[in-house]
Design a protein around this nucleic acid. Structure first.
Lengths: 242, 242
DNA sequence: TCAAAAGTGTTCAAAATACACCCATGA
DNA sequence: TCATGGGTGTATTTTGAACACTTTTGA
């Protein structure tokens, strides 16, 4: 059975998604562990159907793996060195899992050829509210979990570099854009916004100046106060203005 | 004879180059007119060989068309809608030029299929010194000329949109980068730099403040004065510091 | 009434912009 | 010596960071 080779995919072209989530002052990335012996970790990836656009494909892949649509997702870089192939990687997987690759059952010859060709990857990154996501495993995944961006496992191919480049790109985008609020729930306090910025940029900011800067962007609206039970002044809640 | 289909190109993937040049307060783009009846204008394009990286391919294409290498060239955007194909365009060309498409001589069936597939394009833009470039026509080009960015002919497919996006990207890059000086000759006056910026951003700047801003970047070195014969103070020449 | 954390106003320094003046050049 | 355009110094405004103070909350 051919899983890939006969599908209506564009060959030699893949999409890799760096899905950023945020929780308790930690920036996290969604990573799958492959369902094979040996520890193989990968970004959620997929291929482009002949009938769909590249952005469309990226959205589909994101939705297939997280269940959510209509989320911030953007291309950040292409990866296309001449020798970029996962042939060695796949051979290693097969070597460690020989019993599962007997007689073309798991992976046909055609699929092997298709998958180990030289590949060009379009790198996308997404920002999601971690509470809205239920990671969806495929048959090939043993697990699919959030990893702190500073405690990543050893990733296959150049996926580690991809995450680094995605983070760089995210930081650059934030200078002119407040897209990052996609990482927060519907309503949030100013302190939560500040924690988020400090986590992403790995810096600290003065509370009052930060508040002024964000409010001056004129994209937030102030709602009622949030009484937490703590013995201090209740902070305001904010949400995106529509 | 197959020109494309049997070549070692990656299929369904193209590179389009927006080559910016600058002359006398005009920002220009290098555009080819195809060597067929009917006015068909195109960006310099090419395909990616199996054995070369994508950036490498872009540099090769640029060199094939301008004769220069080691020039500023960068990816700015991918173009990959589902229906993105030049089938209609090519059929139109063939219709207007039937005498040249008799008997597989100019374009084989295989080539036609290959060329009219759904294509994804990697958009690159380059900045070149217009005086160092001798546009190199291929067999398919009737002409290859510089066009003022505000006086572009009607371009095939989405090439017009590509130029717009490339310009946007160039402007963004300029905010943090002085790469734009690739558009100028080896030595230049401050006024020439200012003219260039004003042309690209379509704004005017105060002379003294502009000079200060550029010099504060610490990337230029001041050379001797340039005596033009005009009855005014001779301006200094500058060049990139190494 | 007190500690903790949020909100807001004021001050200070730095950067961007505007204004003014002087200088070199060739007719 | 004059008009022209180039170079540079000084004021002014705007921006952003630092500091200080007040308010709210629940114990």
């Amino acid at each position: 059975m051919n899983l890939f080779a006969n599908q209506d995919y564009i060959s030699q072209l893949a999409i890799d998604c760096v899905i950023f989530g945020y929780q308790e002052r930690e920036l996290k990335v969604l990573i799958t562990k492959l369902n094979f012996k040996g520890d193989f970790y990968s970004l959620p990836s997929g291929f482009i159907l002949q009938k769909e656009g590249i952005d469309e494909a990226a959205h589909r892949i994101l939705e297939e793996r997280t269940g959510i649509s209509n989320i911030f997702l953007t291309h950040f870089k292409n990866f296309g060195q001449a020798n970029r192939t996962n042939k060695k990687f796949l051979e290693h997987v097969i070597e460690l899992n020989q019993e599962r690759f007997v007689g073309d059952v798991t992976l046909s010859k055609a699929d092997f050829e298709w998958l180990t060709a030289r590949f060009i990857s379009l790198g996308y990154y997404a920002l999601v509210d971690i509470n809205k996501v239920t990671p969806i495993k495929t048959a090939l995944d043993e697990s699919m979990e959030w990893y702190n961006i500073h405690e990543l496992p050893t990733m296959m191919m150049d996926h580690h570099e991809m995450i680094e480049k995605a983070l760089e790109s995210l930081r650059l985008n934030l200078d002119t854009n407040i897209i990052v609020l996609n990482l927060l729930p519907e309503t949030f306090t100013m302190k939560e916004v500040q924690d988020l910025y400090e986590t992403i940029f790995e810096e600290t900011y003065a509370r009052n100046n930060f508040q002024k800067k964000i409010l001056d962007l004129n994209v937030l609206e102030r709602l009622e106060k949030k009484f937490t039970g703590a013995q201090n002044k209740a902070p305001y809640l904010y949400r995106f203005r529509r």
